[in-house]
Amino acid sequence: MHLDDGRKAAEAGDWVAAGHAFVRAAMEGSAEGAELAARVTAELVPLADGGSAEAAALLAGIYLEYFDESALPAAAAYARVAAEAGLPAGQRTYGHMLVKGLGVEEDRERAAALFRAAAEGGDAYGRFNLALLVDDTDESLQLFEAAAREGIVVAGAVLADRLSALDRDEEALGWYVWAAEHGHTEAMNAAACWYRDGFGTAPDPVQAVRWFFVMLAHGDGNGVHEAIQMAKAGALNVEQIREAGRLAGDPTSAETLIGMLPSGEGF
């Protein structure tokens, strides 16, 4: 879908829209999207040089993500232009470069100011990046939550980690589950382990195995070994395994796990 949108935008001569679409495709794992995003820079350069802050911010991001280190000076120059123009995406990108020292001298204080400006301009990643830098615990938690509610899934997982460190386990589990439901595999593993061990809730082997199954469906096979151990230890019966598979949307894995049990075990 994103590739088609990008091609249509390119045919119409809207290179900024095309670039954004190709980047979105690349972020979803499309190698062709990454290739097209890199190629569209040839069309973005004259736009950025002509004063388009949006083209400059997009160009900087593409240079950072899809080019080697030789592109860092150009990425920094375009990100700075976009940031100084007050564009939240440019502020966030230039701030990221300042935090990491990518093509510029590291300056975390200036980066934080740029992230705050981006956040105030409505940029969700700006909120997330600012949350990682601020010292005030309450503010950082609020920023992580705001970023998560605006669709930054990793913000929900990090929020869960921070809440766990504060011994706010029930809240932490809620955010691990939220991030897991949005496809974050590390949060899936955390949710599964917490349900298994009873952190933030009473032990719930069905939910534990459910999330181990979901991990497997997302290409992470580590959880299936945990599920096998739980089943063989008698932590849940056959019907509970089937319920975990139903909740995970993966009845096949449930039947496979049942088939691994010695005859009569788990009933």
Score class of each variant (00 low, 15 high):
residue 5 D to W: 07
residue 5 D to E: 15
residue 8 K to I: 12
residue 11 E to C: 01
residue 11 E to Y: 04
residue 12 A to P: 02
residue 15 W to K: 09
residue 22 F to K: 13
residue 23 V to K: 12
residue 28 E to Q: 15
residue 28 E to V: 05
residue 34 A to W: 05
residue 35 E to D: 15
residue 36 L to D: 06
residue 37 A to E: 04
residue 40 V to Y: 05
residue 41 T to E: 11
residue 46 P to S: 08
residue 49 D to F: 05
residue 52 S to V: 02
residue 53 A to G: 09
residue 53 A to R: 04
residue 70 S to M: 03
residue 70 S to L: 05
residue 80 R to A: 08
residue 82 A to N: 07
residue 84 E to V: 03
residue 86 G to Q: 08
residue 86 G to N: 12
residue 90 G to E: 10
residue 90 G to M: 04
residue 91 Q to V: 08
residue 92 R to F: 09
residue 94 Y to L: 08
residue 94 Y to Q: 07
residue 96 H to S: 14
residue 97 M to F: 10
residue 98 L to F: 06
residue 98 L to T: 11
residue 107 D to V: 03
residue 108 R to T: 15
residue 116 R to C: 08
residue 117 A to L: 12
residue 133 L to Q: 15
residue 135 D to M: 05
residue 140 S to M: 13
residue 141 L to R: 01
residue 147 A to R: 07
residue 149 R to C: 01
residue 150 E to C: 02
residue 152 I to D: 02
residue 160 A to C: 03
residue 161 D to I: 02
residue 167 D to W: 02
residue 168 R to Q: 12
residue 169 D to E: 15
residue 170 E to R: 14
residue 172 A to P: 04
residue 172 A to S: 15
residue 174 G to C: 03
residue 176 Y to L: 05
residue 177 V to N: 03
residue 177 V to D: 02
residue 181 E to Q: 14
residue 190 A to P: 00
residue 191 A to T: 14
residue 193 C to N: 13
residue 193 C to G: 11
residue 193 C to V: 15
residue 196 R to F: 07
residue 197 D to R: 12
residue 197 D to Q: 12
residue 197 D to T: 13
residue 201 T to Q: 01
residue 201 T to N: 03
residue 205 P to E: 07
residue 205 P to S: 12
residue 211 W to F: 15
residue 216 L to C: 09
residue 217 A to Y: 05
residue 217 A to C: 04
residue 223 G to D: 02
residue 223 G to C: 10
residue 225 H to E: 14
residue 227 A to S: 03
residue 227 A to R: 09
residue 229 Q to R: 14
residue 234 G to Q: 04
residue 235 A to N: 08
residue 235 A to F: 01
residue 239 E to V: 00
residue 243 E to W: 00
residue 244 A to D: 06
residue 247 L to T: 07
residue 247 L to D: 06
residue 249 G to Q: 06
residue 249 G to F: 04
residue 259 G to H: 11
residue 259 G to C: 12
residue 260 M to I: 09
residue 261 L to E: 05
residue 264 G to A: 06
residue 264 G to N: 10
residue 265 E to V: 09
